[in-house]
Design a protein around this nucleic acid. Structure first.
Lengths: 337, 337
DNA sequence: CTGAAAGCGCTAACAC
DNA sequence: GTGTTAGCGCTTTCAG
């Protein structure tokens, strides 16, 4: 069943059917109505691959994320997909699970499918697959990589805004020893976030204690390990800031198990403000990174290549902000609990 | 850049290029090598829409889920996508957010993209979009709908296996008053699960107390509401079984807030055994429904239509099993706590 | 306002 | 072992 069949039944040409389907206004309303009725009756659905072949555009975008079990990503995906759906665009989704071979193949598959662009939230990015993309004029938008170029935009997370607010808030509560549990070492996004923390600490006039700068892996387990190490220190911090909420939750679990109270003994602040932060106890104070805003920015960035796929990319930015909940309070007085 | 360009550079015809790319063995190895080198040098990627147009098959499957923020689904998606990727197939994903207009449009879009089949995990399914699918010979695999037909398979969740184990286990711990917090009323999947509970209760020789059969909505909030209602009853149950883990977590939260202890005052059992059950306290005993197995079954079911898209569908089945963790223990003695 | 026809890039007969 | 070619279904000039 194709447009010619519809045309035959409706007694018109396939060109007219095409015009009706695409809402051309240069079709006689009566003719259009007749065609529409035939489409309805036959439940005809046009073949998108023909359109894609003809046009060179698929109205499909690729989305690549590192780890769908981190709740940040589902919340992002939902927004991203909703925006695309509104524009009658589709999403080809893939997970790298932190493996670069997967990334390579995934990008290849997406290129074959003629995606109109790729949103890449993964962090472990090698240059080779990216070059293949840009060479084939597939726009790419990355996160917090701080590199732009022809067909390549980036969305930087403005960690500073939320991080500064968090440190001012903690400082105001009397906290003077504040530790940080970062993300996976080596990823640019981890570096940026850590640097923002260090700057924020300095901006409230506190020293940066190297022993208080730990690394995690953006997962609960990493937060647990780092928190355990922190509790082995001679002098404890009074507050902990984590590179994401899962890390903070891991820290929280260790404190719970040791019989330490939050926020009485320790204040904890997460990052991202995922929904999970509201259902744990106490609800986690967190630096919010809006998934909705981030998704909108990604779509905007991708769409800006619609006219000229190889046009010069831009640096976009998304703000963060502090959301105070139950895991933070006045600093305890004692060096240890 | 297309196959003819590659052909020209390599000094062969486009048919040969096609053969090389598709691994035909009737190509002179030296020629093949030459072609491969040109492909490498030019970073050539074939245009999949042409192949799809030619073949009528896209190697792409649609996945439709109701709510990506329920952690069950990301875990499922990860497995589903990994299996497809291994077969060099792609996934077009969409969320309905429980809205049937979304479902209608989503299915339409997927049909346009020439998907080779759709995995539909949403529950609020109307017949109209399904008819359009089957009319256009797009295979459909549903979950726990218990309806099959030409081009239509179903995967039923064998709730009984896990549910019976759960009840025998609770009964063995001395529980005699066991409540159930179901899913959203009206969905077939909710009905099946509730019925499995009732049967399991009867099979251990206990009466079914109507006041102990409540409804939720598969979310934390629904579990909270239902648990609150249960605590308003004259006589309390000693154990609660929930239709999914989020519901159980909601119940747990209410008990926590009321100062009631789990498992001392109440035993709680969830359903699905999502990863979240291990990070809450106490870890939630749950009836496990393996996402990996479910995903494998979906792919198998879809693949079985590969030869004949309109062949007769089958009823598949996935088992459930009890996973005992920390939220269950001996029944308390008192009627109320 | 409508139709005829070329061509998007690939594959699979079929011919050599 | 390799090339030629028709055609998948759609859109879009160009004619009328």
């Amino acid at each position: 069943m194709d447009m010619r069949d519809i045309a035959r039944i409706a007694g018109v040409s396939s060109a007219t059917v095409s015009r009706v389907i695409n809402g051309s206004n240069s079709v006689n309303p009566a003719t259009a109505e007749k065609v529409r009725r035939v489409i309805e009756e036959t439940k005809f659905v046009p073949n998108g691959s023909a359109t894609t072949l003809k046009y060179g555009r698929s109205s499909t975008y690729g989305l690549i994320i590192p780890d769908i079990t981190n709740p940040f990503f589902p919340e992002f995906i939902r927004s991203f997909e909703a925006i695309l759906a509104k524009n009658r665009q589709d999403m080809l989704m893939a997970t790298t699970d932190h493996q670069s071979t997967n990334l390579q193949q995934t990008i290849q598959r997406m290129m074959i499918r003629q995606v109109d662009g790729i949103a890449l939230l993964a962090s472990e990015i090698e240059t080779e697959p990216i070059e293949a993309l840009l060479h084939n004029r597939i726009p790419l938008v990355t996160m917090d990589r701080r590199v732009v170029g022809p067909g390549l935009s980036d969305i930087s997370i403005h960690n500073g805004s939320g991080m500064n607010a968090a440190l001012q808030y903690l400082h105001g509560l009397g906290h003077r020893r504040i530790a940080y549990i970062g993300g996976s070492p080596g990823l640019t996004i981890s570096d940026h976030r850590k640097r923002a923390f260090v700057k924020a600490v300095q901006s409230v006039g506190l020293p940066v204690e190297p022993a208080f700068l730990r690394s995690g892996n953006y997962r609960i387990r990493g937060g647990e390990t780092a928190m355990t190490e922190i509790l082995d220190l001679e002098t404890w911090p009074t507050a902990i800031l984590a590179a994401n909420d899962l890390t903070a939750i891991g820290a929280l679990r260790v404190l719970h198990n040791r019989g330490l109270a939050v926020p009485k003994d320790f204040s904890i602040i997460g990052f991202d403000d995922i929904e999970l932060t509201d259902i744990i106890s106490p609800p986690l104070t967190s630096v919010r990174l809006s998934r909705q805003t981030l998704a909108e920015t990604f779509v905007t960035a991708l769409a800006s290549f619609a006219g000229e796929r190889h046009g010069m990319g831009k640096e976009f930015s998304v703000k963060t902000s502090l959301v105070v909940k139950g895991s933070t309070g006045p600093a305890r007085k004692k060096t240890r609990s």
